[in-house]
Design a protein around this nucleic acid. Structure first.
Lengths: 129, 129
DNA sequence: GTTGGCCCTGAACCCGGGTTTAGGTCAAGG
DNA sequence: CCTTGACCTAAACCCGGGTTCAGGGCCAAC
C-alpha cells in the first residue's frame, strides 16, 4: 500500500468527516496517534480506512466507547471476533427493542394521522399502553 | 372525576417517574403549573394521566420540544389532529430511516458473530458500505 | 422543642458526541 | 515584507434530558 502521507484536512475530506472529529477520536483513543512532520499530523490511507470502520460501527449503533474496546483489542493483536461476539450478544436485545419501538411508533404515526381526536389528552392512541 | 389532590411525590410514584423530572417537565411547559397548597404543588389525576401521555410520546420517539408543541395546541383548544398530522408527516421518514439502519445493524450483528476475522480493520463486514 | 420527612428554589453538574474559540506556528505567494 | 491558509493546542461551549446540590420551609410526631 502506498505510503501516501495525508494531512488531517485531506483525511477529513476523504473520510467525509470534520477535522475536529478526527482530533476528537484521536483523544478518545479510537485513532492511533499518527506521525508528525513539523508538528503536523501525517496519515496514511490506513487512517482513512479506519475512519470508515468507525463510521460503519457508529452507524451500526455502537457508542464510541464500544468501538474503542473493539479497536483496542484489534490493536493489541487479539482476535477481533471474540470481542465482537461478546459485544454483539450484548447489543442484540437492545437493537431488537429499538426496532420494536420504532415500528410501534411508525404504526402509531400512521394511525395518528387518521385519528380525529380533539385533544391529545383525550386521544386513545396516547393512552400509556 | 375525583379531586384527588396528590403531592408531587405521589404523582411521581404513580407515573413511575422521578420528582425532578416532573419539575423539569413543568419548566419545559409540558405540564401545566398546578395549584399550590402552602407552596406545595397539588395535582389531580389528570397530571398522572398527562405524564402517561408524555411517556408514551417520548417512547414513540418524540423529543420533549415536539411533545410540547402537541400539548400546547391541545391546551389552546386547537384540534390536536392537525398538529399531529403535520408532526407525523415530518417524523415518518426519520422513523423509516431509523428502522432501516437498525435492521441493517441487526443483520450485521448476526453475521459479525460468525465472522472469523482476526482484526477489525481487516474485517470485511466493517468496510464502509 | 426538636427530629424527621417531604416539599421548595435556583444553580450547578452529568453524559455523549462533538464544535467553537482564542492564541500560536509555519510555508507559500503576491 | 506581509498576508493568507492550513495546521497546532487547550479550554470552553453546545444540545437534550434530566439529576444533584445547597440552603430553606412547613408540619407532624415524639
Amino acid at each position: 500500500m502506498a505510503e501516501a502521507t495525508l494531512s488531517i484536512g485531506e483525511v477529513a475530506d476523504r473520510a467525509g468527516i470534520s477535522v475536529s472529529a478526527i482530533r476528537f477520536y484521536e483523544r478518545r483513543g479510537l485513532l492511533p496517534e499518527p506521525e508528525r512532520a513539523g508538528g503536523q499530523r501525517r496519515y496514511t490511507d490506513a487512517a482513512v480506512q479506519r475512519l470508515g470502520v468507525i463510521g460503519a460501527a457508529k452507524h451500526a449503533g455502537f457508542s464510541l466507547d464500544e468501538i474503542g474496546v473493539l479497536l483496542s483489542s484489534t490493536d493489541a493483536g487479539a482476535p477481533a471476533h471474540e470481542q465482537l461476539r461478546a459485544l454483539a450478544s450484548r447489543k442484540l436485545p437492545e437493537v431488537d427493542a429499538l426496532i420494536e419501538r420504532a415500528q410501534a411508533m411508525r404504526n402509531w404515526l400512521f394511525v395518528a394521522s387518521e385519528c380525529g381526536c380533539e385533544t391529545l389528552d383525550a386521544c386513545a392512541l396516547l393512552r400509556p399502553s
